[in-house]
Every structure is written in structure tokens, then in C-alpha cells.
């Protein structure tokens, strides 16, 4: 894009000027006119040539920079061919044409992929919903027959199906996102009830306190996230005295929900990776660990603007905290 390169490209033009200058000198010598005039004329020819070239360069550079700026401003760059000005010049047109075609092909391809992805996602969602009816039937059957091991297995199936559903949805949250005011204990209570059997059977002491606070968030998504964490807490309790503590704190006007268990904890070497997809820990009992739960928690939390963090001491405790976003609505209400 430098002026030098531009001159190099226009070298034939410059050579022509040189040739013209020699020709003028030759004529002047032939006609025996003072060479001073010749020098002056040649000087002006070159001055005007350079001025002309510089002007052309300036205009072209401006245009080029404009295209670059437009491209940079564009979020989805493959739409550049739509906004770029048509260039009919012999130099520009082939590039313009190629870009246009490439973008068109790319857009078609993206459209196809998006469609098939959407179809697939819709299929997965409808699968997850359809399968809930037979699961509900089996679950009620197991409940009525008081078949504990069947109930336990169904619980696992339900958990997997839930994960599938949220995994499929996690990329398109916007559609299914509904923020409303909700009391934290109304989120927690159904989750504890859901796990009542296993909590009682394993003699887990549930200590729930200070949950009379409101947050503004999407109930279903947050419920799913908390249930993943709660399931983990239950799964990894290993002491004689098993305890899970659920409570909330207000820090800098933000509501922080804590889920603390005195289970086996997380090795400090594993800690940075717990949110990674497929990570199941290096030395935990791998009882139906999928490595998807916490990954989804992290992913969904980012969409909901909730900060999730884990603090743990190996063999001692794990503490998961959810920091709910400050809400403008929240502040408005506090004013009154």
C-alpha cells in the first residue's frame, strides 16, 4: 500500500516520461534551442507526473482504507461483499467478482449448516421431551412398586436426559431465556425434594439457611445449574457425617448462593480443569461421571451473566458459589 509500490506498479508510465524527456532534449538539441528551456519543460513534466500519480495514489488509498475500515467494522465479515462498492475497473473487477462469489458460496454453506444444526437441535429437544413420557411412566411404576434400585437407575436416566436437553439448548439460550424475579429458596426447595430419597437414605444432613432473598434470573436454567452442582455434592460425599450446606450472602449488593459439602473435595491439580468438557477428575470414583455437568454449568452461567466459582480443599470440602448479576430492577426497588 506504500507510495513506492504504487510507483513500481506504474513504472511503464514513468519510463514513458523518461523517454519523452529524452525526446524533448533531442528535439531541442536538433533545433539548437537553449537547453535551459528543455530542462524547465522536463522539470515541469516530471513535477506534474508526480503530482498526478500522488493524487491518484491518494484517492486509491482512501478508497482502500475505507474498504478495510468497513470490513473491520463488520461483525460478520462474510457479509462484506454486500456492502462493498462495485468496482468495474480492469484491475478491481476480477477481485470484486471473486469476493462476491466466495461470500455467496460461504453464506449458502453457513445457511445449510445452520439449518441442519437447527434441525438436529430440534430433533434432540423433541427426543428429550418425548422420552420423558415413558420415563414418567416407569418412574411412577417404580414409585408404586417401591423398587429402590429401579428408582435409582431412573434418576440417572432423568439426569442424562436433562443434560442432553440443556446441552442442545445451550447454544441458543436467547430463544428460551426468561428473566423474572424469584426467591432463592423457591429454586432450592424443589431440588431438595427431588433428592429426598437419596438424601435420607444416605443420612445426609441438609442445612439450608438465609435463602429468603430475591434474584432476577431464568428459573429453569438456574435450577438446572444448581441441580448439577447438588448432584455432584451428593455423589462425592464420603465422610461418616455427611453435610451439605446451602445459603446465600449479600456481597457488594450482589446475591451469592453457596453450596458447600464436606465431601472428598477436588485436588488442587484438578481444580483448573473441572469446568472443562469431558473432564472427570484424575482420581475420583467415576460413578456415572460424564464430564458434561459442570461444563454446562459454566456455559449456561456465562449466558445468564452468573459467575460460578469453585473453592475446594482436597479431602475436606467443596464450595460452589453462584454470583447473581446486579439487576437494574433490583436497584430501582431498593430505592423505594
Amino acid at each position: 500500500m506504500s507510495f513506492g509500490l504504487f510507483l513500481e506498479k506504474n513504472i511503464s508510465f514513468l519510463l514513458f516520461q523518461f523517454f519523452l524527456s529524452f525526446f524533448i532534449f533531442f528535439i531541442f538539441i536538433l533545433l539548437e534551442i537553449s537547453l535551459v528551456f528543455a530542462i524547465l519543460i522536463v522539470f515541469f513534466i516530471f513535477l506534474f507526473t508526480f503530482l498526478y500519480l500522488y493524487c491518484v495514489y491518494y484517492v486509491k488509498k482512501k478508497k482502500a482504507l475505507e474498504i478495510i475500515r468497513e470490513c473491520n467494522d463488520l461483525e460478520e465479515k462474510y457479509y462484506i461483499s454486500e456492502i462493498i462498492h462495485k468496482d468495474d475497473s480492469i484491475d478491481g473487477y476480477p477481485y470484486y467478482y471473486a469476493l462476491k462469489e466466495a461470500c455467496k458460496a460461504m453464506n449458502d454453506k453457513i445457511g445449510d449448516i445452520e439449518k441442519s444444526e437447527r434441525d438436529y437441535q430440534e430433533y434432540i429437544e423433541s427426543f428429550a421431551h418425548e422420552i420423558k413420557t415413558p420415563i414418567a411412566a416407569i418412574s411412577l411404576y417404580a414409585e408404586n412398586k417401591k423398587d429402590e434400585s429401579l428408582k435409582y437407575e431412573i434418576r440417572k436416566i432423568e439426569e442424562y436426559v436433562e443434560q442432553v436437553l440443556y446441552y442442545a439448548r445451550s447454544d441458543v439460550t436467547e430463544k428460551d431465556y426468561f428473566v423474572k424475579k424469584i426467591k432463592i429458596n423457591e429454586l432450592i426447595h424443589p431440588l431438595i425434594l427431588k433428592n429426598k430419597d437419596i438424601l435420607l437414605k444416605r443420612h445426609i444432613i441438609i442445612n439450608v439457611h438465609d435463602l429468603d432473598v430475591y434474584v432476577y434470573t431464568d428459573e429453569k436454567w438456574v435450577s438446572f445449574m444448581i441441580s448439577q452442582v447438588l448432584n455432584n455434592a451428593i455423589k462425592y460425599l464420603d465422610k461418616d457425617k455427611k453435610m451439605i450446606e446451602i445459603y446465600s450472602e449479600i456481597k457488594d449488593n450482589q446475591v451469592v448462593l453457596m453450596i458447600l459439602d464436606n465431601g472428598c473435595g477436588i485436588r488442587s491439580s484438578d481444580a483448573p480443569r473441572v469446568f472443562d468438557k469431558g473432564f472427570t477428575g484424575s482420581n475420583r470414583k467415576k460413578e456415572y461421571a460424564t464430564g458434561i455437568g459442570l461444563y454446562l454449568v459454566k456455559k449456561l452461567s456465562e449466558k445468564l451473566d452468573i459467575t460460578v466459582s469453585i473453592d475446594s480443599k482436597y479431602q475436606e470440602y467443596t464450595k460452589v458459589s453462584f454470583v447473581f448479576p446486579k439487576s437494574k430492577m433490583h436497584e430501582e426497588i431498593q430505592k423505594y
Partner: peptide, 24 residues
């Protein structure tokens, strides 16, 4: 969400999602 909303709009008192959890 649309189901939940419709259930409220049509005058339903509550909303339970399958598979049923007995206690809930």
C-alpha cells in the same frame, strides 16, 4: 416458557413437568 405462560393465561393454578417427581 411458552407452555408455562399459556398455563397461567388459561387459568391454570400450577405446572408440573414430566417425569414426575413424586414429592414435587
Amino acid at each position: 416458557e411458552e407452555d408455562e405462560l399459556n398455563s397461567i393465561l388459561s387459568g391454570g393454578d400450577d405446572f408440573v413437568v414430566k417425569p414426575y417427581n413424586k414429592y414435587i
